[in-house]
Amino acid sequence: MSAATSNRDKSNTFRLLAPGVVWMILFLVAPIMMILYVSFWTQTTFAINSTLTLDSWRNFFGSEAYVGALWTTIRLWLIVLSLTLLIGYPAALFVGLLVKSKTLSTILLVLCVIPFWTSFLIRVLAWRPMLGKEGAINIILQKIGLIDSPIEVLLFSELSVIIGMTQIYVVFMVGPIAFMLGRIDRNIIEAARDLGAGFGRIFWKIILPLSLPGVVVGAIFVSVMVLGEFATSGALSGRKVNLLGNIIVTQVGSLKWAMASVVGVILTILLGIVVAGFLRIVDLKREI
């Protein structure tokens, strides 16, 4: 290759990259830097000034409520992630692999997406009449005589937040996994059978490893959304469950920009660690 063409290639590369780079700098890098910067500003009750201080950071780590919210966020994230995987994987296995007809599996995937035809908030709030003291579940359980008095822990508790989030986010787990499973060549599974492997062996040695990229993508989707959650916990916990997202909302609401920024930075770091961790499991570039 001559120097001239190589130069032209290089300038073409930059020209093609430029819009994306500009976009990312303006709307991703700059805001994050700004949040990081603001987190060191000095906050007084009614005002904020750009004198740098560690006060907000000290406040965060000194407060049991804030640190508690961090742990609650992590705990709920792990529970919801496990539940979406536990519920989502078998569903994806059925839709993506066991259903032989492509039409039927598409229909089933569309069915999974139907709840998205209503807004996110409606879907969250719809759990209230389901889980409430005089909600559908309690009424049914009482009618068939399984319980005498309504189960109160169903609504406005950590449990209701977990139920709500799992229902809302499980589809983000099902989708990518079903996609990866659908791409597995059926001959490969038959080849494994022919070589003497029973279903369990085929699942652990062939199906699971080949669908792992889907699990990782699904887990990233679910993690990113759950870690940043505030609406579900706000609507279903009766203010009993405080996640980092809820704290940001409250702090922004009371114009405590510095503290909101501190929580934002911590959340961003947490997300970065989680996503990077998942990406270490599989080399997505190779798989997709």
């Binding site: 060549d185 001959n187 490969i188 038959e190 080849a191 494994a192 022919d194 062939i206 490893p209 080949l210």
Partner: peptide, 13 residues
Amino acid sequence: IGFVFQNFALFPH
């Protein structure tokens, strides 16, 4: 019984 597939069906991973 051994089976050799037309597309070989090797385990890609």
